[in-house]
Amino acid sequence: MGYRIVDLDTVSPSDGRPCEMRALGTAAELSNVAINRFRAEPGEQLPLAYHYHEEQEEAFYVLSGTLSVETPEGTYEIEADGLFAVDPESPQRAYNPDDADEDVVVLAIGAPAVDGDAVAYDPE
Score class of each variant (00 low, 15 high):
42 P>G: 03
26 T>F: 12
12 S>N: 13
22 R>V: 01
99 D>P: 13
104 V>T: 08
54 E>T: 13
67 L>E: 01
115 D>A: 13
74 G>Q: 06
42 P>H: 04
95 Y>T: 03
29 E>M: 06
37 R>P: 13
70 E>C: 04
78 I>Y: 03
116 G>Y: 09
72 P>K: 04
87 D>A: 09
51 H>G: 10
46 L>N: 09
36 N>Q: 14
25 G>W: 03
55 E>K: 05
70 E>T: 07
113 A>Y: 10
25 G>D: 08
33 V>N: 13
61 Y>N: 02
59 A>R: 01
13 P>C: 02
26 T>Q: 14
43 G>I: 03
72 P>E: 09
83 L>P: 05
85 A>P: 05
92 Q>D: 11
118 A>Q: 10
21 M>R: 12
27 A>Q: 09
61 Y>A: 02
31 S>Q: 15
106 V>H: 06
62 V>M: 05
97 P>N: 02
17 R>W: 15
118 A>F: 07
98 D>W: 09
57 E>W: 00
107 L>K: 00
60 F>N: 02
7 D>E: 15
98 D>S: 10
7 D>L: 10
38 F>T: 03
105 V>C: 03
106 V>K: 02
116 G>C: 11
2 G>S: 11
79 E>W: 04
3 Y>C: 14
86 V>Q: 00
91 P>K: 01
10 T>Y: 09
56 Q>E: 13
120 A>C: 13
14 S>T: 12
32 N>V: 14
6 V>S: 06
10 T>M: 13
26 T>H: 14
15 D>E: 13
71 T>K: 07
